[in-house]
């Protein structure tokens, strides 16, 4: 049994659960509603960006880990077959990410394209794709490490809170505490380290809210607008995507079921 076949099994299994259909439909209604009722393009893009940055990681993680916990028996059964453990892991990882992508693209990107948002919709798609892969990796990592379902989901929510809320809180606190020092470099580093912040900052710069940033904005635009800053951000996003997934695979390979 090769990877493709495993992906096919997992994918079919996830699609059958109907959960993804409801999820896609909800996103579709939500984003079309926002675009339709808000007259301001920038405002609706901001609202959709918030969904992409905060809702999608959360749902990605909860869905991923719930699916993992529920299909433990199926995985154990698969492992009795002559298949590589890595294939089973990747099969699950990619099927989860692909189904999320399916929901995300039909639910959010499609309405954006229909209402003609141009390059911004493409940008949002890239950002969303990164976040989906990153947080699916986290979901699997934590579910593999923690056997107890309730505990696992608890930790996941904590991880989400860390990325979405606490990290910004810590950054804000640091800014406040070190207000007397030049903070341009610190802000750049701080907003590059968190994948959610990277996507938000880049989106904000695209939306030209950067003018508000004043001097900091100038350094920001210089950094993120330059190819170096762009590649560094891409590199950081890739690291966030690869490292948790690799650790998860390693743990999965050695896991005693």
């Amino acid at each position: 049994m090769n990877l493709r076949k495993i992906i096919k099994y997992f994918f079919g299994d996830i699609i059958r659960s109907k959960w993804i259909v409801v999820y896609t439909a909800a996103l579709l209604v939500f984003s079309s509603g926002i675009i339709y009722f808000s007259k301001d393009e920038q405002k609706s893009l901001l609202s959709l960006m918030n969904i992409v940055m905060y809702l999608i990681p959360l749902l990605c993680m909860i869905f991923g880990s719930v699916y993992y916990y529920n299909s433990r028996e199926f995985i154990e059964m698969l492992l009795t077959q002559p298949v590589k453990r890595s294939s089973v892991f990747y099969g699950q990882y990619f099927s989860l990410a692909f189904t999320q992508m399916l929901g995300f693209i039909t639910g959010i990107i499609l309405p954006l394209l229909i209402f003609n948002f141009g390059f911004n919709s493409f940008f949002l798609m890239i950002a969303g794709t990164f976040l989906i892969f990153i947080f699916t990796g986290f979901a699997l990592l934590i579910s593999i490490l923690v056997n107890d379902k309730v505990k696992g989901i608890g930790i996941l929510i904590a991880v989400w809170l860390l990325f979405a809320v606490f990290y910004d809180g810590i950054v804000l606190f640091m800014f406040y505490y070190f207000a007397d020092y030049p903070l341009e470099k610190a802000t750049i580093i701080a907003s590059t380290l968190n994948p959610v912040d990277v996507t938000r900052t880049m989106m904000m710069l695209r939306l030209d809210i950067s003018a508000l940033f004043g001097y900091t904005g100038a350094t920001f635009k210089k950094y993120f607008g330059s190819s170096a800053g762009y590649y560094v951000s891409l590199f950081v996003l890739h690291m966030w995507m690869i490292i948790p997934a690799l650790i998860a695979r390693k743990k999965f390979n050695r896991k005693n079921f």
Partner: peptide, 16 residues
């Protein structure tokens, strides 16, 4: 906050 620490404006649009 932004008035006091202009750099904090990068957090515009953050959930926090």
């Amino acid at each position: 906050v932004v008035e006091k620490v202009p750099e904090a404006v990068v957090l515009t649009g953050s959930f926090l």
